[in-house]
Design a protein around this nucleic acid. Structure first.
Lengths: 335, 335
DNA sequence: TGCGACTCAGGAAACGTTTCCTTAACCTGT
DNA sequence: ACAGGTTAAGGAAACGTTTCCTGAGTCGCA
C-alpha cells in the first residue's frame, strides 16, 4: 500500500480513501487504481478490521451439530445464501453435540472477532454463550431454544408437529402408538416427546410401558428398539420416530420384519429418497432452509444496529403424507 | 494486552512470550496468567498473524460445489476432522459450479490470507487458481483434476468405477446398456462417460443412438431422459446413471413405469436410504471422507513446508451390490 | 577479584490498515 | 483585495500483536 501510494504519488490516506470509496479527486483516484493494478496490490481485510473503528471482520461464525448432517448442511447453505450477497464469509464448525467442542468453537470464533454467531446449541454451554453475548457479540440460536438474554432464537414447533402426526394416526383408528425418541438432553427431543405425550393424553390414548423409548441415539439403536417393540407380546399398530436416524433404523426393522405395509410409521424430518420407498415414508417435515434464512435475518438485523431483547421465531412443521403414515389400523375399514 | 502487562508489572514482550509458550520465568508467567484472567484478556489471532513472521492465519479455505450437497458436506466434514485437531478453522463456501462464484470465493479467501485452499474446481477459473498458487498459496484440488503447476489433486477413478459396473452388468448377460450423464463441462462427467464408452467398446457392445444421454442436470432431467429411453421402441435391459440426482430421477421413472424389478440399474455415488428401496439400489460408491482426508493430508504437508511439484492421488471406487444391479438380463437363467 | 560470555526481560519498531489532525489551497463575500 | 470559511489531501498516530535489539544481571573462569 505504501508502494502504491509512492507510485501514484499520493499519500497513504488517499489510497485508503480510494479503496473504501470515499469521494476523492477522480484524477488521483485513477492514478491510485492504475498503480494498484501495476503492483498487483491486494487489500488486506485483516489489517483493515484491526484498525477500523467498527472492528468488523465481515465474517460470521456458524456452529452446527455436524456440517455433514443433511439438516445442518441445508441450514448452512441457507445462511450462506443470505449472507454471501453482503460479502460476508462463513466460518463453520461441528460441535457433534459435544459441549467441549461447542465451547472450543465458540472461543475460537470469538477470538477471531467474527461479527456474529449462528449456533445450534448443545444447551450445555449456555453460560458461555451468554458471556460472549454480553461482550457484545450478536448471537442467534437455531433449532433449539436457549433462554439467553439478548439472544434471538429460531425453532420449529416440534411438539405441534408430533401432535399433528399423532392426531392423524388417531383419526385412522390407531390407539396403540409407539414412540422412539432421541437423547433427552436435546431440547428438540424433549419437545417432541412432550408433543407425543400431551397429544396422546388429549386423545385418551394410554401410553403403554415398553412402547415408548427415549434416549436412543443413532440408526442402530433405532433399529434395535423398533425390533424389540414390534416383536414384543402386543405390538403397536403405529410408530412415530422422533429423529432422522431413528426413522431409518425403525424403517429397516419394519422392512426386515415384513411389517412395513402393516404398521403405520411417521418420522420426524424429511429424506431425499423417502418417496421412493414402498410404501413411501410419511414425515413431519421441517424446513432447514427457512430456519437458516430466518436466523440470518435476525442476525443481520443485529448487525444493522438492532440491540433490543431476544426475539423468538417459531416456524411450523409440515406433515407430508406419502403412504406409510396413512396405513389404517387393522380391522378398521379403509377410509 | 498493555493492561495485562501493566497489571502484571512486566513488559509487553513478556506477555507475548507467556501467551506463545516461549520459556519465561515461572513467577512472571504466573503473574501474567493471573493478570490476564483478572482482566478477561483474550488473545487476538488477527493482530497476531498480522505481525507474525510466517503470517499464518490458522484458517483454511474450502470451496465446495454446494455445502448442502451430501457429497460436499461429507468432504467438508472430513477436512474439518483432519484440521480441527490442529486448531485450524475452516472458511467454507459454495461455488454452485459457477465460475464467477468460484472466482469470488477464491478472491475473498486469498485476500483474507488463508493458509491454504481446498477446492472442488469448476475447471473454468484454473488460470486464477494458478495465479494464486504462484503467489505462494498452497492449493489442493479435490474430486476433479486440474492441470496446475504445484497444485495437488485428489480424485476418484471415475472411469474405472463405471467400467467395473458395466463389466458386471455384461457378466449378467446385459448387452443393451443405457447411460445417463451429467454436464459435459464437468471433469467427472467426462471421465465417467469415457469409462462407459471404452468399456462398452472393449466388450464389443454397441452404443445405441438414444440410449446414451449426456448433459443432463438435476433429478427432473434424469427422470425425463430415463422415461424417454425406457418407453422408446427397443428399451435397454440395464441402465447406468452417472450422477446422484440422475440416479434418483431414473429410479423414479423406473418405479413409475413398474420396471424397477425388471431393468438393472446402477448409480454413481451412494445414498443414505439406498438399501431400503426394493430392490435396494446398487451403486458405484466413492468415499467422500477419504477424499477429504487425503486432500487435507496433502495440504498439511504443504503447510509443513513441502513445496515440490503437484502430487496426484487417485482413489478407487467401490461397487456396492445391493440388488438393482444384480438383475439378470431377461432370458438369461438366474445365476 | 575482575572480565567476558551468556541469559533473560523490557522498550521500540514493525505488520497493513484507518482515522484524526493539520496544512494548504481555493472560494466567496464585503 | 483581503479575511474568513470550506474543501481536500497528506502526515502521523493508532489498532493489538510479534520480533528485534539493547541493557542489565548472573555465572564461570582465569
Amino acid at each position: 500500500m505504501k508502494d502504491v501510494a509512492a507510485l501514484a504519488g499520493v499519500g497513504l490516506a488517499t489510497v485508503s480513501r480510494v479503496i473504501n470509496g470515499t469521494p476523492v479527486d477522480p484524477v488521483l483516484a485513477a492514478q491510485v487504481t492504475e498503480a494498484a493494478k501495476r503492483l498487483g496490490y491486494r487489500h488486506d481485510p485483516t489489517a483493515s478490521s484491526l484498525r477500523r473503528s467498527d472492528r468488523r471482520t465481515r465474517t460470521i461464525g456458524l456452529i452446527l451439530e455436524d456440517v455433514a448432517n443433511p439438516f445442518s448442511s441445508l441450514l448452512h447453505r441457507a445462511v450462506e445464501d443470505a449472507t454471501s450477497e453482503l460479502g460476508l464469509l462463513l466460518l463453520a464448525g461441528s460441535s457433534d453435540e459435544d459441549p467441549e467442542r461447542e465451547r472450543s468453537l465458540l472461543g475460537a470464533f470469538h477470538a477471531r472477532r467474527v461479527d456474529g454467531l449462528i449456533v445450534v446449541p448443545t444447551g450445555q454451554v449456555d453460560d458461555e454463550l451468554q458471556a460472549v453475548r454480553r461482550q457484545g457479540m450478536p448471537i442467534v440460536c437455531v433449532d433449539r431454544a436457549a433462554e439467553l438474554e439478548g439472544v434471538d432464537t429460531v425453532t420449529v414447533d416440534n411438539a405441534e408437529g408430533v401432535g399433528d402426526a399423532v392426531r392423524r394416526l388417531h383419526a385412522l383408528g390407531h390407539r396403540d402408538i409407539a414412540f422412539l425418541g432421541d437423547r433427552t438432553s436435546l431440547w428438540t427431543a424433549r419437545r417432541r416427546w412432550e408433543g407425543f405425550v400431551s397429544t396422546m393424553a388429549a386423545l385418551s390414548c394410554p401410553l403403554r410401558e415398553g412402547w415408548v423409548r427415549r434416549d436412543l441415539h443413532g440408526e442402530a439403536a433405532g433399529e434395535r428398539a423398533a425390533r424389540e417393540i414390534l416383536t414384543g407380546g402386543t405390538p403397536p399398530t403405529a410408530l412415530v420416530t422422533g429423529q432422522n436416524l431413528l426413522t431409518i433404523g425403525a424403517r429397516s426393522a419394519l422392512q426386515d420384519l415384513g411389517l412395513h405395509h402393516t404398521i403405520a410409521h411417521v418420522g420426524f424430518d424429511d429424506f431425499e429418497l423417502a418417496n421412493l420407498l414402498s410404501p413411501p415414508l410419511s414425515v413431519i417435515a421441517q424446513d432447514p432452509k427457512a430456519l437458516g434464512r430466518r436466523a440470518s435475518e435476525l442476525l443481520l438485523s443485529r448487525l444493522d444496529g438492532y440491540d433490543g431483547p431476544g426475539r423468538h421465531v417459531v416456524l411450523p412443521t409440515r406433515y407430508v403424507a406419502r403412504g406409510s403414515g396413512e396405513i389404517t389400523r387393522p380391522g378398521v375399514g379403509t377410509g
